[in-house]
Amino acid sequence: MIFNLINVVVVVTVGLVGIAIYGMLVSRNLMKIVVGLQLAVKAAMLAFILSGRLNGKIDEAQSLALTVIVTDTVVAVVALALVVQVRRKFGTLDIKAISTLRR
């Protein structure tokens, strides 16, 4: 059966990772890059749940995913705070414009 739940989740996970990486590589907007990062983490959580489901340890997988959510939230908060500061100092979120440190 192609449309069983497992296959759908696999497709969604891979798709999310693809979108996230693509978005982070091509976007020049810092905010979009942070969003891409969040997508990637969500995909990782899905991957955990998927693994737990497949090997029958869904409860452990859920606890791992919860922990990931917590740490991920902290990262997101710090990232957004920095983005706000960047916007204030540089007046832009274009990553080319904020690449003053090079060489």
């Binding site: 990486i21 982070m24 590589l25 091509v26 976007s27 020049r28 810092l30 890059i33 990553i95 080319k96 690449s99 003053t100 440190l101 090079r102 060489r103």
Partner: peptide
Amino acid sequence: LRAGQTGVLSWNLLAIV
């Protein structure tokens, strides 16, 4: 070689990939 340190985030992420 120093030109390789572009300072642009997308290139840096590409390097990781």
